[in-house]
Design a protein around this nucleic acid. Structure first.
Length: 646
DNA sequence: GTGAAGGGCCAC
DNA sequence: AAACGTGGCCCTTCAC
């Protein structure tokens, strides 16, 4: 059977075309105006066709110990090396690494792993020590495209950690600065930045063959060699756009994430199934009861007994509810239906059904298919720049959307004799906002160390902290969260139950309490609309494109652009923390197992838990302090067998 | 059958 | 004044 690895790999590199948000943007940007990809090739010489023909690759296939030694001695003199691998599968737990290609640009060595494979794999083979040494050497920069992929294979199979990675994939994403139409596969990046068109015919070849064809080897060599001229262009572009610092931050985060994906997160499948059974029972019951209630609103109900409708069809459910005389809102979303639930039991039942249906499907049997048999753990796929803000995204499965409910969280466990340490930043985005705005009163609410929402409520409503009513605290809390997203009075009123005028007055009161916060948000919004860009503390850039005549689009771009530095700085901090943690736990039993935006979960030997906890807290605090100088940073941590609270 | 698009909802 | 930011997954609907 042939394995179309390169093809699949490229598909993986490409920003997901079918991603809902990006898809929406591809037609009309999220701010309403048609977007265009950038024309021309920055730095490209323009002679695209000539480049293909002219690209002579000087390469050598290495298949024995002497060859490895000689090649590595020659390559060790180079300051920058292109690095690529060819593998038989995408997943290191499922396939094998066939080739490792290292290129100085002038000369490329293609290391065939097949002759070096022993019963213990490649790890034990000392003939590969020079290669490991080269990959781990701090002296040379290694240029890779989607370094996480190769780093995982090299870590898993060779036991080596790549030092000094330069990732052309991440660099291309940073330079694109949120331009969603730009693609980032190796072929796209090569074309865009050097004008070279890559020949893809060998993508579909069989990398398991005992003897690789000359064409296969040349193809492999070229993919490593091409990385050097691409990097040259990227380095210039990164400098020009002041992105060098954030690029270093991203590159240093690759190895921690590669290791985290290899580590995986332990899942108690029995506990998961038990919870699923419970939910399925509740789902069946809720479905049955909902059918009964709805059937009264279905025409043929009386003739044939109960008329079954598809409870997952918004259309059918809406029609049935209308027939029952329920005054339907514009959408059937939970927050819109909630007010009707008290008066109409059928609406309450629908909401109940929705809840259990979500649990039974999104967190059902399918989740268990992601458990790797070899490890008994889930090895999710983390996209390092998953959002233009710099946040991670996660899929297959998405470990960032596991319900809070202990019934789910308790299924994520440490291995035998091991313990989890779970740490998260307290109110990190609000602290970032406090730092950016330099609002003394807002900062003071953090410095006091007391309940933040209560303290802000006392400030806003001008009462003593002990006199703050639960309502006042709740208003302050919702506003504290809302302002980060640019909430308006109407939405604030909707979620608090305040009238439009009361909501407006409360917001006015809030912003007059925090004058500099108000000024910062206005200023930030103004800059977003005039300069059409935004940056985080690390310098991460977002370019915004919108039609200035479309008020809705301007408003959306403004909220997005104001939110991005806050959300993105939080991502910067997390990424920095991951690197500091990675360096601090080297040689210990501590392993990174999951991250969720402001939370880091590690697993360690039970006896080492106190050290691990201190190390984790220190890494997170040190990282945050690099970006937040004037507001105290707080990290909460706990030690547990499982992810649950208890 | 396959896939795009939209609704809905889980997380931070 | 005028829609609260970022993701992924599951479902239905509809077009091909």
């Amino acid at each position: 059977m042939h394995h179309f690895i390169e093809f699949a790999q490229n598909a993986m590199f490409a920003p997901p075309l079918r991603h809902p948000v990006h898809r929406a943007v591809a037609q009309t940007s999220r701010f309403g105006k048609k977007m265009r990809g950038q024309a021309g090739h920055p730095g490209g010489s323009g002679d695209t066709i000539e480049n293909i023909v002219a690209m002579e690759i000087n390469f050598e296939l290495v298949r024995d110990a002497v060859g490895v030694k000689n090649a590595c001695e020659e390559l060790a003199r180079e300051p920058v090396l292109g690095l690529d691998t060819e593998t038989t599968e995408l997943d290191p737990y499922k396939g094998e690494m066939r080739l490792v290609q290292l290129s100085s640009g002038r000369k490329t060595f293609v290391f065939d792993m097949l002759p070096f494979r022993t019963n213990g794999g490649l790890r034990e083979n000392s003939e590969l020590s020079p290669l490991r040494g080269l990959l781990e050497s701090e002296i040379s920069t290694k240029v890779l495209h989607n370094a996480k992929f190769d780093a995982k294979w090299i870590r898993h199979e060779l036991g080596a950690e790549i030092a000094n990675a330069f990732d052309t994939y991440l660099a291309s994403q940073l330079i694109a600065a949120g331009e969603s139409e730009r693609r980032h596969s190796l072929a796209d990046v090569a074309q865009f930045f050097t004008g070279t068109v890559l020949d893809k015919t060998e993508q579909l070849s069989d990398w398991r063959a005992a003897e690789l064809s000359a064409s296969q080897v040349e193809y492999a060599a070229r993919d490593a060699a091409i990385l050097l001229p691409i990097r040259e262009q990227l380095v210039d572009r990164l400098k020009n756009d002041d992105l060098s610092k954030v690029a270093a931050l991203e590159f240093e985060c690759v190895m921690p994430i590669a290791e985290m994906e290899l580590n995986g997160f332990g899942v108690d499948c029995d506990a998961w199934r038990a919870q699923l059974d419970t939910v399925r029972g509740a789902q069946a019951k809720a479905a049955d009861e909902l059918q009964d209630l709805l059937s009264a609103g279905v025409a043929q109900a009386s003739l044939f007994g109960r008329a079954e409708i598809n409870l997952d069809s918004q259309q059918q459910v809406t029609d049935a509810l209308k027939n029952l005389g329920v005054p339907m809102p514009e959408t059937t979303r939970a927050w819109q239906l909630q007010p009707l639930a008290e008066k109409y039991p059928v609406v309450a039942k629908l909401l109940e059904y929705r809840g259990v249906q979500k649990s039974a499907t999104s967190f059902g049997e399918n989740f268990l298919e992601f458990v790797e048999p070899k490890t008994g753990r889930v090895h999710a796929d983390f996209r390092q720049i998953g959002a233009p803000t710099g946040r991670f995204s996660c899929s297959n499965p998405n470990l960032q959307q596991i319900p809070h409910d202990d019934a789910y969280r308790k299924c994520f466990r440490a291995g035998q004799g091991r313990t989890l340490v779970i740490a998260d930043y307290s109110q990190i985005e609000l602290r970032i906002l406090a730092e950016f705005s330099a609002d003394e009163k807002f900062i003071e609410a953090f410095r006091s160390g007391a309940d933040f929402h209560l303290t802000t409520a006392a400030q806003v409503f001008n009462v003593k902290p002990e006199e703050v009513t639960p309502d006042q605290r709740s208003f302050a809390k919702r506003l504290n969260f809302g302002i980060v997203y640019g909430v308006g009075a109407s939405r604030f009123g909707l979620m608090t139950g305040l009238s439009q005028t009361d909501a407006e007055n409360t917001m006015r009161r809030y912003f007059s309490t925090y004058r500099k916060l108000d000024a910062y948000l206005r200023d930030s919004g103004g800059r977003v609309t005039s300069e059409r860009k935004a940056r985080t503390a690390s310098g991460r850039l977002l370019r915004l494109n919108f039609d200035e005549n479309d008020r809705q689009a301007v408003g959306a771009a403004r909220r997005y652009g104001v939110n991005m530095p806050i959300q993105g700085t939080s991502a910067d901090i997390l990424k920095r923390a991951l690197r500091l943690l990675h360096d601090a736990i080297r040689g210990t039993s501590t392993r990174l197992v999951n991250i969720v935006h402001d939370e880091i979960i590690v697993e360690c030997d039970a006896g080492e838990v106190e050290n691990a906890r201190i190390t984790l807290e220190k890494a997170m605090t040190d990282a945050a302090v690099e970006f937040i100088k004037n507001v105290p940073v707080k990290v909460d941590s706990r030690v547990s067998e499982a992810w649950s609270k208890g």
